[in-house]
Design a protein around this nucleic acid. Structure first.
Lengths: 67, 67
DNA sequence: CATTTTTATACCCATTAGGGTACAAAAATA
DNA sequence: TATTTTTGTACCCTAATGGGTATAAAAATG
């Protein structure tokens, strides 16, 4: 799968038929954050990402690099 | 295992017999960052964490919550 | 196509992450 | 126990994240 964080959130959000503002509110983060994250911004805060992932029963963890 | 990011880095660092300052330099981050991360600080930047994990051939990814 | 909805970009601004450095505390070692 | 090494805490400072909001662009819908 090698799903990036960005695409994972985007796909999960669409599965739930939520818009970015709706997801942002549910997670308690800003709209801009959701957008930047879905666009692959790397310099985001870990706790904010986890706030979003929590809605999907997931979180950030260490995985093996697939190089 | 449910290894947290903090303990993962700490253990990998010790496997390589590196001090925190040495690891920080290798990864190109600050010493304070390594310390705060190993102590479980959540509000860290994703890209900085990946700079460290890269030394161990790993990275941050989405995992299922073990709740 | 026209209209509505959704997403992306641009601006301002407060908060804070993270760098450095110095010193204290703890751990390891002789 | 004394000494050295490693780790933790405290302070200052700059850069940038993330929030809001307004507007433009793109996508979806009738």
């Amino acid at each position: 799968m090698n799903t990036s964080i960005a695409t994972f959130i985007k796909e999960k959000r669409k599965q739930l038929k939520l818009t970015q503002p709706e997801l942002a509110e549910k997670a308690g983060v800003g709209i801009r954050f959701v957008r930047e994250l879905e666009q692959g911004k790397q310099s985001v805060r870990l706790d904010k990402v986890n706030q979003l992932l929590d809605l999907f029963g997931s979180e950030l963890g260490v995985i093996q690099k697939t190089n």
